[in-house]
Structures are given as C-alpha cells and as structure tokens.
Write a protein that binds this DNA or RNA. Structure first.
Lengths: 214, 214, 214, 214
DNA sequence: CATGAATGAGTGTTCATTCAT
DNA sequence: GATGAATGAACACTCATTCAT
C-alpha cells in the first residue's frame, strides 16, 4: 500500500474511460437493441460502475446518441477519405461504394446500430440517422447530376427523379451490406456498379423502359 | 337506453374483436416499436380491456407475431395477384413493383412493422420477416435468371452475382418505399424500372463497368 | 333435433351437477392448493361453464368451504359409524383409528384438503377445519377420561394433561396417515395403539417418566 | 436536520438490510401464506422499497426459500445443541423435545412457515421441509433403536414399525407445538414423554395391544 | 338452463436514475 | 473520482367475478 502503481482501482483519464464505455455500449446496443439493452449490462461490459456512466454520459438517450454519432461520423469519414474530389463521377462513386462496403464489414456493430436499430421508428435518434442518410443520398445525387451534365444528357432528368435514383442506390447498397457481409467489399461494390451505372448511363442517353411496351 | 348502440358493454363476436385488436396493435407497434408499445396502450386503442386482449391473443409476442403474419400475407398477396405468370420478365417485374409500391403506400403501418420494426436485431420474429424478404428476393432472382436465359446472355452471369443483384433491387425498392411514400406508386415503380432494368440489360449484353478504367 | 335424449347439452338435475363440481373442486384444490387453483380449471374439470359454477356455489370461498365441509363430514361419519358406543374405551379407540386410516387412504384428495391445505393460516376456513379437529380431540379426550375413570386412576390426571394427550394422539394419527399412505390402515392403527395405549395405561397406573431421573 | 438518524434515505449495510427483509418476510408469510403474501406487503413491512427486495433476494421463490432455510436451520441447531450425544436414549429424547417446544414457542412465525405453510402441496419447497422432517424422524428412529438395543428387547421390533413409531412421535410433537403454544415447553415435553416413552418401554418388553382382545 | 363476452383490481418483476459516502 | 445503496414508475400478465343473450 502506498506504492505508486499498485492501486487496484485504476485511475484512467476521462477520454479513455469514455471510449471504453462507448465501445461497450455499441456492442450491447447492437446485440440487444435500444430498449432491451440495460444500463447495468453496459456498465458491467465497460468494467465501470453505473453512476460513472451517468456522470460521463448523463442518460441512456445521450449515451445512445453518442454511439450513433460516433459510428456515423466514422462511416462518413471512411467514405469521404476514399473519394477523390477531382475524379470522374463513376470513379468517385466506385471509390465511395468500396469504402462503404469495407467499413461496414469491418464494423458490423456500428453498422447494426445505424441500419437496424436507430431506424426503428418511435425510438429517439431516428432523425439523426435519417439526416446522415439524407446527406449520403445528397452526395450521390450530386454525383449523378454531375455525370448527367458531363454527358449533355438530352431530355434533362427531373430533379425528383434524380433524387429517387439516389435513394434507390443507397437502399441497394444498404441491402447488399446486410446480405453480403460474407462477400468481399470489392465484390459487392462491383455488383452494385454494374447494376446501377449502366442503368444510369442508359437513362442519360434518353433510353427509358416503357410500361406500355409489350 | 333503448337506443341501439348505447350499451355500455359492447357484445361483439370474437372474430370482429380480434380484427379490431390487430388493427390497433399494428398502428401502435408501427408508431412506437415492439418494446416501447405497451399492452395497455394497445388495449385502449382497440377500445377493449387488457384481459380481453390476453384472452384472445395470449401474449405480447403472439400478438406481434399475428400482426407480422397478417401484414406480410397481405403484402405478398397483393404482389402475387398483380403478377401475370406468363408475361415477359420485365412486364412481371413492373407489375410486381407497382403493386408493391401501391400496397406499402396504402398501408404504411403494416409496412413499418415489416420493414423498420421486425428487422431490428434482438426483437422476436426478425426471422419470420427475413424469411419473407428472402422469398421475395428469390422471386426476383428467378425473374432475372429467366430474362437472362431469354436474352441468350453470352457471358453467363454467375449465380452469386444474380443473387446479389436481386438483393440490391429489393433494397432499392424498400428504400424507395420509405422515401417516396409521398409519391405515387406508379412514379416509384417507373424510377426503379428505369434504374434497374437498363443496367440488367446492359449486363446481359456483356457490358461491364470496369473498376480499372480510368 | 327434437328427439328425446339426443341433446348434446345435458340437462342434469342440480344435485348431480353440484356433486360433479365438488368432485372436480376437491381434486383441483388438492392438487394445486387454494390460491393456485383457478375457477377456470375447476369449471373445465367439472365439464361445465364457469357461470354455472357461480350460479350454484356463489364464490371461490364458498366453493372451497363446501368442499371442506363435505370431506370433513364424510370422514367424521366414517369414524362415528365404526365406533360402538358401549364398547370398552380401548376397543372404541381402535375402531375409530382403523376407520380413520382406511378412510383417509381411500380418499387422499379429501384428506389433503383437510390436512395440508385448509390448515394454511391466512386462508379462510382454517377455523372450520380447526373446529373439526377439536371435535375429534374432544372425542378422544372423553375416551381417555372414561378409561381413567374405569381404572380408578389413582393420582387423577389433570384435565389439561388429558387434553394434551388427546392432541398428541390426534397429531400422531395425522402424521401416520400422511407418511403411511402406502401401508394398510390396519397396520397403521396397530402401530398407533401399541404406541399410545400402553403409555396411557402406564400413566393411569401412576407411572411417570421423571426428567430428573438419571 | 443534523440529528443522527433523521436522514430520509437510510444507508444501511447489505447484511443488515437482508436480515430485516427476511424477518419481515417470515412474519408476512406466516400470517398470510405463500401465495397470499404480496411482495409489496413484505417490502413495506421491511421498511424498504420493492426493488431493493428484488436486488437482494431476486424473486418471491428465492425469498421464501431463504426464509424456510433460515428457520429450519435455527430449529435444527436449537435441538442439536440441546442433545447430549453420550446420554441415555430417554434423556436425549427429553432434551430434544424440550428444546423443540421451547424454540417453536419462542418463534411461532418460523414454526408456522415450516409446519403449516411449506407443507402445503403445490407450493414450492414442500420438498425441503419434508426432507428436514424426515431427518428429524430418522434421528428419533435411531434413538428408539438404541433404546431397544439397550433393553435387549426380546421380540425385535420390525424396522418398519420403528419408523412408524418415530413418525407418530414427530406428528404428536408437531400437534402439541401448535395446540400448546400457550403452555410452557416443559409441560408439553413432559406430556409427550409420559405418553410416548412408557408405550415404547412396554413395546420393548414385548407387551402388545391385541386388536382381537375382547 | 347455460354460456360467450367482458373487466377491475392486483401480481411479480424490471429499469433508468439518483443520492450519501 | 468512484461506488454501494436505494427508489418511482412502469410493464406483462392473471384471476375472480359479472353481464347480456
């Protein structure tokens, strides 16, 4: 006793403790869902006492919010870092998709929170996640718009249609991320590019599928 | 007293009451989520006492299960009824998408249960919903396969790639259903067909987007 | 329809229906205990609807009370019928014990209600059962008193001691009835007579066990 | 304020609180029975909130089990401490009975739990109590056997008969403990010794009561 | 006579949250 | 800085009991 470094109760700087708590919370929320995860379980998983969790993160809502924010920012940062601003639109989309599939495969708990959990209506933070999603869709929309401009696309695509296409593409990517977790990110990205880009290119050339067509 | 319909304790046949309860439960589960919805709230919404809900539907789990089953069957029936088995593949896909978007737009609560809620990991019945989704994806996969065969598609598409495409399409449709609830089903279906079918057609002609392409 | 004897819903006279209900109730109360037995279960076991049970027996309390009363009277009647009023005290005790063990062995559910269930403090009817027990003890006490008088018992036994002896004997009999359900009534009765009567005889002769005796 | 003991939320060490809870639970279970006693009532009687009871004792079953265990061990300890292993059999029996009557008179609630409540078929822990009872009966059986051996008892008593006698004696003691709670333990013990020991002694001398005797 | 339909009141249990130390 | 002790409020579920038919 009295010897430096022999305390059993670690004095750990706040930043580190907070990260431990967030890690534990992300894992627990991903496994159980927001309501079913208990603060007790999270505190135990983080290796700290419950009041400490409250001291640092104030409430279950704020804790979950912090988890969502952290994971969302990490995903967005990964995608942003992969995209070269000056490159052609298809190249940018490809890089972004690749980074997206690789990041979600590497961080399944984070992805689960963003995709499966936080979306649940009625729960808090559906808005935060929806905002992130909207931001991504807007980015994709801009890419499509740029490509259309480059191609001097003849019968200009309606804004609303472009936005719809962007949402469809985002949904397709999310679905693939969930379904193709077993596959490599490169494979998923290639599948989606092949699927989407040709359709877009065709649209820009004025080719349309006609419902009345026999 | 004496007026028809002024009795305090309504005597209603079981089948009717059960439907009222399911309606109330679907609305409540859609608004709050499985865990956050309380049996009290559902009973009040259905205009009956809690014990009666338990008498007929036995538990929260069974009640939720019944909701999921009913909504899933309704959606599948709507899609199935719209698709003409003998028609060409693109025609079938179009009809199915149209029916899907129209049904989900007309029954947003049912769709919320199937899409947002039941998927949440940790909640019960995620499996049932995943199974329904897999069934739909398989149907789409078969359509794509048939179209590819019709087109004597040269460099045969790998099975795994077709399955991936099917999941991407399903995800795109789900995403559009959520985003474009305000739009007409016809519009959404057209957007998706334009987006997807041209890409598929191009793929079948052997056209591929090449990541290495500068 | 209209044919005599072909109704599916039996019209059964009240007395018979009541007996069916009591039989079912005795079996159910014996198996589950007073609180754990539900009126639903009893009604199903009796093969009638619940409101009919209420129509005839008014409440769970009254139903249980009727069960206790019926079983208690049956047991007392069996014992009373076996005892010959004029016979010597030991003979009377023997006959009573024999009848008691045989009746309880033949009606284990009734005995369970009287012995294990109805005694539980806090439950209603503990009093009714206690009264029956007191009546039996009093009968035994009178027997012992008569025997003592016959024997011109020297140092007259204190009234309280005789009452205590009677209670001890009753308890011994109850314990044997529970433990020795597998044995024949005759065996149990013989064991108890051998055990008790000699002790009583000795007491009457003035023989006492002395605590201070080495 | 400032006065010792005037805090609104008492901070009491866990061991103390647990004992308070057990005391309250024993009293409540004794008064109402297992099913009729509510956790609310117990918590109020213990002067704490219900969640604290659950935090420490986990469930109604475990709480009841803890009560039964504690009271059973206390009773057994009291009896064991009173019996001198080397003493003659009658002396041992006397000491044991005396301790038994004194302990049950001093702790009527504990005795109620062991005797009236836990025995009720259908309730949990009937087994635990039955096991304790069997242990006591076995101890008494051994005493009778030893006495018989000392006395060179001629027509050896059948094992089953000895076991029956032991059960009869235990039942007699239980009955007296319930009936004679108002009397002194010494009085009850004396009554039972006089009743039982002479009968046993007579049996060992080969004296038997004959049913066929006129 | 007999019952399907219905409920008020209460049960055991859990959880997010906060003090006093 | 860190925690053991404590609780208010709510939740899923059950049961004895009663109408209206």
């Amino acid at each position: 006793m009295g010897l430096v470094g022999t305390q059993s109760k670690q004095r750990v700087p706040r930043a580190v403790r907070e990260r431990q708590m967030l890690d534990a919370a992300v894992a627990t929320f991903a496994k159980r869902g927001y309501r079913a995860a208990s603060m007790d379980e999270i505190a135990v998983a983080a290796g700290v006492s419950k009041p400490l969790v409250y001291l640092y993160l104030h409430s279950k809502d704020e804790l979950y919010s912090a988890c969502v924010r952290r994971e969302a920012e990490a995903l967005q940062a990964a995608v942003r870092a992969a995209v070269e601003p000056g490159a052609p639109a298809d190249r940018q989309l490809w890089s972004g998709l690749l980074a997206f599939f690789e990041h979600t495969a590497a961080h399944p708990d984070g992805w689960a929170i963003l995709y499966s959990q936080a979306r649940t209506v009625g729960e808090p933070f559906a808005e935060e996640v929806a905002a992130m999603r909207a931001e991504i869709a807007e980015f994709v929309r801009a890419l499509i718009g740029a490509a259309a401009a480059d191609a001097h696309c003849d019968p200009v695509l309606a804004d609303r249609e472009v936005a719809g296409l962007a949402h469809a593409l985002v949904g397709a990517a999310e679905s693939l991320a969930g379904w193709g977790a077993a596959h490599s990110g490169r494979e998923n990205a290639a599948t989606l590019m092949n699927f989407a880009w040709s359709g877009l290119a065709n649209l820009m050339r004025g080719g349309r599928w006609e419902p009345s067509a026999r």
